[in-house]
Design a protein around this nucleic acid. Structure first.
Lengths: 255, 255
DNA sequence: CATTGTGAAGCGTTTCACAGCC
DNA sequence: GGCTGTGAAACGCTTCACAATG
């Protein structure tokens, strides 16, 4: 049993799906499922089975032909590959609506990302407690990052303050940033940035809604919606769904 | 001046970037900038200039060679293409931490997505007011969707309740869903679903952090971080940044 | 014989490079 | 001269199809 690290560079698209497999596999493990086929995993994840196999193949060959994958082992391998063998404390900048929600949302800590601290510029907010974490002043950012060994920062400030927040995070020593503000952050190339823009997501939906209305002007206003919750199929109309962020073209499995 | 609708199908990747251009262009318009080149727009958006030009070309040929694009006109074209010529009221299911933050976050309404309603199963939450909107019981969902002509629903429930929420939304007549719960929703193919999973984003960052640690064990602990905020360059190390969700390979412009 | 693992084909996206135009 | 618009090349991701195999 070789515990060697896979040398290959894993494609970004695959990296983005591994967390989804991981969640599904963890659920299966809880339900005492010991083995799973690529077909089943694909069904649960709303993806193509070939994609699942290719994705998993980047981790190494951990399946058994004719049988499937051992759930527990796969969970272990994915965790290792994603660097989830230990916790990654995060620091949140901005204790507004969003920052509060993030701090209060238990799912972060549960999934291995405990909130090491939350900071704000506004002295009025300092001292209040959110999700068990006391809000501290932004000047204490460096100290928090250093003492708690934080690598990941979350920007949850208003748009105007986001760039400054990012710069402070970088100066404090953070190397990855999750940005919720609708701006493109300017940071050194060595810093990994991911952006989540809620308005953009809605605007993409708006595009499809608009298209629906334009493409075929004739259409029964609330056509055949039903047949929900049946099998395991998933997904939007050749659009984006469970896995794959922006460019997943998913089709239901239809067992 | 042809106001004809572009016939071409716009690639999904482009659709995902148009909102970003739109935001930048709107900002430029506010600063009284009348004309902009693909180079400048690329710089501000953290993308390649060729990509900007190709993206905009799908809208039609609205630029002027040797000059650039007229900001106001481009704003108008992108809005039209994205279906943002009118508002899209949204309904939020789930008045927990996240639902509250979303309702309280003014940015939604400002960007053309007013919160038409927020519902919850918990009677204790019904009646409370969030961001100016009173929480109503989930049984009133259909009525809200019908009377306010809502097309877009937001799932902000705990994981366990998400599938039910989605089914209710679909039954109520919603045709697009923005899902914040970490599950793959099973809905009819005709429904457009987009998913935002905060834990997944963090896990992707974790992967890169882990990789950083593994790839080259020798490295100055807090190497050359500086040179921030200088020009207009952007982006991560060949990874994801401003534009492009999952698969943007951005490189700074370095004027 | 069911299911994995994977070359190879297919497809969508990005980038290049330059002709076309103001 | 500067900048757009776009074929064509390059790239990465997805899907197919089937040989390999427990």
């Amino acid at each position: 049993m070789p515990t060697e690290r896979p040398r290959r560079r894993i494609p970004e698209a695959t990296v983005a799906r591994l967390p989804v497999y991981l969640r599904i596999l963890s659920e299966q493990a809880e339900e005492e499922v010991e083995s799973i086929s690529s077909d089943r995993l694909a069904e649960l994840g709303g993806v193509n089975a070939a994609k699942v196999r290719k994705d998993l193949s980047y981790l190494g060959s951990y399946g058994t032909r004719g049988v499937g994958y051992e759930v527990a082992y796969l969970v272990y391998q994915i965790r290792r590959e994603l660097g989830l063998t230990h916790d990654w404390p995060v620091v949140i900048v901005g204790a507004g609506n969003l920052g509060q929600a993030l701090a209060g949302y238990g799912g972060f800590g549960e999934r291995g990302f405990p909130v090491a601290g939350i900071v704000d510029v506004d002295p009025a907010k300092v001292g209040t407690v959110l999700g068990g974490v006391r809000v501290r002043h932004i000047d204490e950012l460096s100290q928090i990052v250093q003492s708690k060994r934080v690598n990941i920062g979350v920007v949850a400030t208003p748009t105007a303050a986001a760039q400054d927040a990012a710069e402070r995070l970088v100066r404090a020593g953070v190397t990855s940033i999750l940005n919720f503000a609708p701006v493109v952050l300017s940071v050194p190339r060595s810093i990994e940035v991911r952006k989540v823009d809620l308005a953009v997501e809605l605007q993409i939906l708006s595009y499809h809604e608009q298209r629906r209305a334009t493409t075929s002007t004739l259409r029964s206003v609330s056509g055949g919606v039903s047949g929900i919750g049946g099998g395991g199929g998933v997904s939007g109309p050749g659009g984006t769904s469970g896995i794959g962020g922006t460019a997943a073209t998913t089709r239901p499995a239809s067992a």
